[in-house]
Design a protein around this nucleic acid. Structure first.
Lengths: 197, 197
DNA sequence: GAAATTTCCGAACATCATGTTCCGGATCGT
DNA sequence: ACGATCCGGAACATGATGTTCGGAAATTTC
């Protein structure tokens, strides 16, 4: 019981239909009927498996999370095995991963569509970080906040890359990301919004 | 011509109705009819002034932008007049401003509702920064990216504050914000996601 | 391989929000 | 006061969502 081949076929068909559509248009503009047409699935069948489009999205991204986690583990263990290599940086690997799937740009791009998808991906990234980052002892920078900050910085760099500087290479994007996270912004570039006492 | 009292009454009633509703529930869940009921405005009248709910939101936030700009100018000029004061930091003033209007929490909080509102507010903040920040000369950190990063960091701190640590004071939140923007995260807190060569 | 389940399809239906149209009456500027 | 403009309200078209149900088809089980 539990593993009727029809249900896994139905569900994966819907997962893939949604992800395929997300590459072509904004999530919010995708209609349930389009998903059904793309997946060749009946309307009532859809609602027998998922309660809504958002539900389908969430479960689709659970697959993506597993994918990310294994990718992260792979690059980290590769890093520990042979130090001094160049492909051992998870953050850079992530940028390169995105570069290979540049067709999901419209899913992350601003506007009406992006919000839910971005939030869901933020959650995935945050969970990955939560599993791999050490505990910090800095009282003024709680771990939760650091994680959120890294996620949001990653997203900021990523969107800047996709939206305003598409010609940037993954390694340049990663360099900017690391600089921002590790060293911040030069004080003279913040004035007078942030005054350094 | 141009300033018929009826139209300004209608529009401000709609602006305030929307902002009032936003304090109570998620933007996406607000229906046009609710806005009409709250503002006591007829349906056809609404569509005579705005093309959609999003249109109304955008124009509502233009008012907020003007408010922000003047507030920023005020604190900056106050800063230049009497140095060594304590209320001369625009970023801290912004956190304090938010603290006073804590009832918009649900508008910024995650989930389905927040996306569009957050994006719109991001735009406002980015525009304010664009007007006041100097040009940077750092080639690896373009101005656009710095602005986006500051906006997203502000949002990250703000949401962390509202969602996970509501008891934090504005000055603590601002301290964390400044630390993140100016100095970044200690390297040992990033490993092994970001490796420092 | 046949019986018994479980799932799928498809069409019809109810519901709800959006946006448009129209006109009598109210309100405004001058 | 008068002409121009705006407002209200109801009616309508549209389009997406989610539900229901009975017969057909696939799958598991034995």
């Amino acid at each position: 019981m539990g593993i009727d081949r029809r249900v896994v076929r139905t569900r994966t068909a819907l997962y893939e239909a949604l992800l395929s559509l997300i590459r072509r248009k904004h999530y919010e503009l995708i209609t349930v009927e389009e998903i059904l047409a793309e997946a060749n699935i009946g309307r009532s069948t859809f609602y027998a498996h998922f309660t809504s489009k958002d539900d389908l999205l969430k479960r689709s991204l659970e697959r993506l999370r597993d994918l990310l986690v294994t990718a992260k583990d792979r690059t980290i263990s590769a890093a520990l095995r042979q130090e001094g290599e160049q492909a051992w940086d998870p953050s850079r690997a992530l940028f390169e991963h995105v570069a290979e799937h540049a067709d999901i740009r419209s899913a992350l791009t601003g506007g009406r569509g992006g919000g839910i998808v971005r939030d869901a991906i933020d959650d995935v990234l945050a969970e990955v970080l939560r599993q791999s980052l050490p505990a910090t002892m800095d009282a003024t920078l709680p771990r939760d906040l650091v994680i959120r900050h890294m996620v949001s910085t990653f997203n900021a760099v990523l969107r800047w890359w996709l939206e305003v500087r598409p010609e940037t290479t993954p390694r340049e994007a990663d360099a900017a990301f690391r600089k921002l996270v590790l060293h911040g912004v030069p004080p003279e570039a913040c004035r007078p919004f942030i005054m350094t006492a």
